[in-house]
Write a protein that binds this DNA or RNA. Structure first.
Lengths: 356, 356
DNA sequence: GTCCCCGTGGGAACCGGTTGGTGGGGGTGG
DNA sequence: CCACCCCCACCAACCGGTTCCCACGGGGAC
């Protein structure tokens, strides 16, 4: 028999353009024009349509609009952990800037799980996202490069764009925008500052051994030592993750093992916070007995006692920038590679070496 | 090797079902069935289709699928400020649980701007989101109730659902799910604890005067006083917002004005952190000279010196719960109203009144 | 008075997928 | 050897909007 012509009339359910059209006594195209385009419509018709829209509480289906070519573009933001303050600030920047440019933004926390990351990117490709922003370090293995490269190509082929934020670049030729904040440079400056205070044995509470953010900071640590002619003791390089608990645990272990050091560089302010508590629990004064510094300059850094000397990273601006460059040249502009500067913020947690 | 392809497909353009179909020598419907349904397809055909899919790097357009009735459901999460640690933890819970249930989640920071909030909700209605979760306090005015009520009805009529998390309920009959964490109860317990230590003049660093979260906590503060037979001095109720800077500023002003108090309750751990710094800058010892307590139990609370006594709120679980109840009964189940318990976490920032 | 043009609104194709109904072809049982 | 049945792929309708193209009608100009 005939296909079901039954159609829900406006009351209660979601209503369609045709419902509105029927109620206003015009055609669907007219409704669409009143709502959407710059097409000329007489005042009387417009009023009737708008009234029908109001009465039915109609909102055009965004997905359908998208399929038809109109519709709000979307942008995806993938990070490891939205709970981390620095990432959260970036997320804020991304979300604000995306909104400003008329884009919707999707957020995904991957927990560092590569599978989830890939799945999400695939979803975003299906959503025809205008850009996918990946943020946070990763293991820079050949496998990583190949995988990410493939993703980048897929996105590029679909007219989208991959943005790597604080992630290892993929080598030349990959259709990617890379934005890095200077992990090595910041750490270098910070450690140089500590060494200049006379410290010679500086403990480094790092991140995962293959994580590029952590490694960048570690490279800065090493470079600063070498520049000063100090041979860093490999035993002073500890690995954890970027959480507060990790900092707490690592510092406890270091103390228990009887490691000797007069200063501590934490890969993150969060790690520094945990470490500070561990030091305090051990009865050590900061910076009297041990100096301590962090990285990221999260707002809380000022409220630790002593206030934390750290490296400032403009996270919110970073997020905004990522969106802007990603969307600015949606097409095929030169593949950019930006490096954002950082600077040391000196507070009270680093003191001159007392030689105790 | 150059892949000879028409402009419609292959590298450079998104490919469609029909492209894949053509390449595999089958019809579009067959492709769709291979990819999507449980429809029986012969092994040979399936292989051919899958190969074509791989070669073209095809991904079905999610929007089109959604329009056609298949597709991943979506869920929206609206908060004031993703930068706040407690909100971030909720966001994490929401995102995780949504993903677990096969939903995509959109996040929006409104900065407390009502206009942006409404705009975003409207967008979500257009996206046919399965649910919209609103989190964070708001001014509980008649206007607020009416406006939100209208939004709730709209969503309900569209088969969606509004969830209010830590927001003023709308009164009976509104199609809303309300989940609250017990602000008043938590504050009551916390202040009771402080009063039990002998303090009688307790400064309250609150939030915006009409903000329900802040008000709930303030009510708890007042109730605890009355229960103990202490008449609270209205001069000790200060108003700011929930940021660290607000805490810092408020505390400085209080000290400058020469207010007398022996303990401070901050409406938020963030506020407490700022206040702590201000106290320290004024040369006051915590808890020696002044006792201090916060609210939220963010991870950092342990790392303040002294470690902050505060009220624990299960934010991540709250987010998960919001998603679960919102999605559990997508339809028209009883409008729930849940109240999550909180409990005081005693650390080192509150001491017995010394009568100084 | 007639012609032309412009302002408006309608019909239909299309966006990219999904799915119900249908029909052809091959395997198997009688 | 034929008929029956089932398997599998195709056609076409549909989801909800948008937009190209065309028809119609009225008013101004000559």
């Amino acid at each position: 028999m005939g296909v079901g012509l039954t159609r829900k009339s406006g009351a209660g359910g979601r209503s369609t353009v045709r419902d509105v059209a029927a109620r206003a006594g015009v055609s669907a195209s007219t409704v669409s024009r009143v709502l959407g385009g710059e097409y000329p419509v007489s005042a009387a018709t417009r009023t009737r349509v708008l009234r029908a829209v109001r009465e039915l509480d109609y909102v055009a289906d965004a997905r359908a609009r998208a399929v038809a070519g109109a519709g709000t573009p979307t942008l995806a933001f993938v990070l490891e952990d939205i709970t981390g303050p620095s990432f959260a600030h970036m997320a804020y920047g991304v979300e604000r800037e995306a909104a400003r440019l008329g884009h919707l933004s999707l957020v995904c926390s991957t927990d560092g799980d590569v599978r989830r990351e890939l799945e999400f990117i695939e979803m975003m490709r299906a959503q025809r996202a205008a850009a996918v922003i990946l943020v946070g370090g990763a293991a820079d293995t050949p496998e990583y490069r190949e995988r990410t490269r493939r993703v980048a190509d897929s996105l590029a082929a679909a007219g989208s764009r991959l943005v790597l934020c604080g992630r290892p670049p993929l080598g030349p030729g990959a259709p990617v925008t890379v934005i890095e904040y200077d992990n090595e440079g910041g750490a270098y400056a910070l450690v140089a500052h500590v060494l200049a205070q006379g410290h010679r044995r500086v403990l480094f509470l790092g991140g995962k051994p293959d994580h590029t953010t952590a490694m960048g900071r570690q490279r800065g640590y090493l470079a600063a030592h070498r520049a000063r002619g100090v041979e860093p003791d490999p035993a002073l390089l500890l690995h954890g993750d970027f959480t507060r608990d990790s900092g707490h645990r690592l510092m406890r272990q270091a103390l228990a093992r009887g490691l000797e050091f007069s200063a501590v560089i934490a890969a993150t302010d969060m790690v520094a916070a945990g470490a500070l508590t561990a030091l305090h629990e051990a009865g050590l004064a900061v910076p009297g007995d041990v100096s301590l510094a962090g990285y990221d300059d999260i707002p809380f850094a000022r409220d630790l006692r002593p206030a934390l000397t750290t490296v400032h990273v403009p996270y919110e601006e970073l997020g905004r920038l990522a969106v802007r460059t990603a969307l600015g040249h949606g097409g095929e502009s030169a593949d950019e590679h930006l490096l954002l500067g950082t600077h040391v913020v000196v507070r009270d947690s680093v003191a001159a070496y007392g030689g105790h």
